[in-house]
């Protein structure tokens, strides 16, 4: 594809993805064709980070992405037929996903590549990097709850504005991937990674906090946000990212409108700085609302 000639890492991952998943060519070629020149530059940067995180296992990750898309389609069938997510309790998700190390690893790998190929996912990462990290306090003690594959935590650790970086995750697989990502990227800033569940999180005070793609995995997301508020200093910034109408193997809390997330963040003790919605499949927001398509919603708040 000629538009990728100047983006060598993106071109390499594109070719690899199609080699193992040729059925995805229509989708991926449209994704590239519909991206602006500026977005392709951003994607190349993202591709370089992802390629280093996945070095030595990129083909496996590409295969796991293909597997993930099929898993997502099965969930989409359920969601469209029943109007709800298939799972509704943490215990079910724990049993079928989190405690299944093989499933979890494939899932994490697939999600990593989704940040390149799904426009809503890549735009969230870019917004976090460009906008959120540039606005936090200089020397911020930064916490991410649920760092997963480690991409956002790496970007935070690499930001000149953070003084220290901490990651908490309930999953040993996630923590291992996060640690690997940080090592692969050669992060030199102090990074603390610990196994904690948000429901019994230790005390601490941070200046900024990332909570990306976690709310939809919780039975009581409102309580979790209140806990996060208690971990932030007054004036601290929170970056919440959660999907609306987004069936997945371990999603249990269904947000039907972006405003439900905004209201929940506000109710937890935050002033809302901004709300940004990125509909999936490059749909307009109006069309995404009308057809109940996935919307990646970002809410940035200030602890008050």
């Amino acid at each position: 594809m000629s538009r990728l000639e100047q983006h060598s890492t993106l071109a390499k991952l594109y070719a690899l993805q199609l080699e193992v998943f040729p059925e995805h060519e229509d989708f991926l070629s449209r994704r590239i064709a519909n991206s602006s020149d500026e977005h392709l530059v951003e994607l190349e940067h993202l591709a370089q980070v992802i390629a280093r995180i996945g070095e030595g296992k990129l083909e496996t990750i590409a295969r796991d992405y293909a597997w993930l898309t099929n898993e997502m389609l099965e969930e989409e069938y359920y969601f469209r037929r029943h109007g709800t997510y298939r799972l509704s309790t943490f215990e079910e998700a724990e049993r079928t996903v989190y405690a299944n190390a093989e499933f979890m690893q494939k899932y994490m790998n697939g999600v990593l590549f989704s940040h390149l190929w799904w426009g809503n996912h890549s735009r969230v990462i870019i917004h976090f990097h460009r906008e959120f990290l540039s606005r936090i306090k200089q020397g911020a003690h930064h916490l991410e709850v649920g760092p997963g594959h480690g991409l956002l935590l790496y970007l935070a650790a690499n930001s000149p504005r953070t003084g220290s970086v901490t990651g908490w995750d309930v999953s040993a697989t996630s923590l291992r991937d996060t640690r690997h990502a940080l090592e692969a990227m050669g992060v030199h800033k102090p990074v603390t990674l610990e196994a904690h569940n948000i429901v019994d999180a230790p005390s601490g005070k941070f200046d900024s906090l990332t909570f990306s793609e976690v709310l939809e995995h919780l039975e009581q997301p409102r309580d979790a946000l209140k806990t996060l508020r208690s971990l932030l200093n007054d004036g601290g910034k929170i970056f919440v990212h959660a999907p609306v109408n987004s069936p997945a193997p371990d999603h249990i809390y269904l947000f039907r409108e972006p405003e439900e997330i905004v209201e929940m963040v506000r109710d937890a003790g935050f002033a809302i700085d901004e709300t940004v919605n990125f509909p999936g499949m490059d749909a307009s927001l109006e069309r995404a609302r009308k057809l109940k398509l996935t919307i990646s919603t970002i809410v940035v708040g200030t602890a008050i």
Binding site: F27, R30, T69, L73, E76, Y77, R80, R81, M281, L291
Partner: peptide
């Protein structure tokens, strides 16, 4: 253009 894999699911389920 909009008839991708997710669109196909939506089409099939609505027709069902």
């Amino acid at each position: 253009e909009q008839w991708d894999s997710l669109g196909h699911v939506q089409l099939v389920v609505a027709l069902e």
